[in-house]
Computed example of a mutant assay.
Amino acid sequence: MNLTAFNDFIKSTFGNLVEQFKENDEYGYNNPRSQDIIQVGFTTNLTPDVIRKAVDNKVQFIITHHDAWDFLYEVREQCMQDLIDNEISHFYIHLPLDCAEFGTCNSLLHEIGISKITQQTHYEDNHEIIGIGDYNEPIAFEELVDRISNALAEDVKAWKNSNTTIKKVGVVTGAGNSTDLIRQAKEAECDVYITGEKSLYSVQYAKFAGINLIVGSHTFTEIFGVKSLVERLKAAFNEIETIYLEEEHVE
């Protein structure tokens, strides 16, 4: 595989999502290099620690959900230099992966055993619309908390604001702490809302609205979408080797 073939794969895999969202803001490359790629590493975030793991595993190409953020002062500059010094290319894909049929939200819903996706996460008039999935049979809130904790391999935060069993689940992976999103889940009659970040306001509003709330980490609520993308990449290019560059549970 080379970057030309990879770019064709991204366009065919994401279709109009790469047109809907702006390149370089929501997806793109850092230090693109014209070489044959065999070793592909993947994870949620681009950090100096991730690049060190890539170097240790002789990775030539890193795929992440997030680019290195400018507001983490000097971290982005360090990442860019580390990529150059170690001759590693990097590709990130954010909102297109969130909104893809196999993307972050749907992958998490499938990971916790949802029977049917009834609403696809998407953007409408520049507003994020939550994903929704249903269980065939209701489960206890506590069982869902255990499922998510086991899937993410981390303790999650949970607020039981209703005694109802769980059948309809609303989700936005990552930074879905907006009260607007929780309100969508309430109006859609979801029994629980799941996301990857919280604030005082999200906790207060979920309690007021009487909707159960479960919050994991930003990193690990989104990793399943990255894994799904890489599985598709491996199916398209069976000569590559894919390596999970697992991050620490720091959140």
Rank of each mutant, 00 (worst) to 15 (best):
A209K: 11
Q119F: 01
V156F: 03
G196V: 01
E143S: 15
Y205D: 09
I243D: 04
K116F: 01
I93D: 00
I37P: 01
R183V: 02
T4I: 08
Q204P: 02
V171D: 01
L95G: 05
M80P: 09
V215T: 10
W159G: 12
I240Y: 12
I211Q: 05
D25M: 13
E142Q: 14
T118S: 02
A175E: 11
D180N: 15
Y123S: 08
L213M: 15
F71K: 14
T165H: 12
A236I: 07
I130N: 00
N16K: 14
K234E: 03
I63H: 12
V40Q: 02
E246V: 09
F237T: 02
K198T: 05
N150I: 07
A235Y: 10
L3Q: 08
A188K: 12
E248Y: 12
H218W: 04
E137M: 13
E87N: 15
A54F: 03
N238H: 15
Y244L: 06
T221G: 01
Y193R: 09
E246D: 11
F9H: 00
F220W: 02
E77N: 14
G28P: 04
E77Q: 14
A185P: 14
L144R: 14
I243L: 06
D125M: 15
I63W: 11
L200K: 15
N177T: 11
T164M: 06
F6Q: 08
F141W: 03
E246K: 15
I117V: 04
Y135C: 05
L181I: 04
L3W: 06
H94I: 02
T221S: 05
E23V: 13
N161K: 07
L245A: 05
A188H: 10
K198H: 07
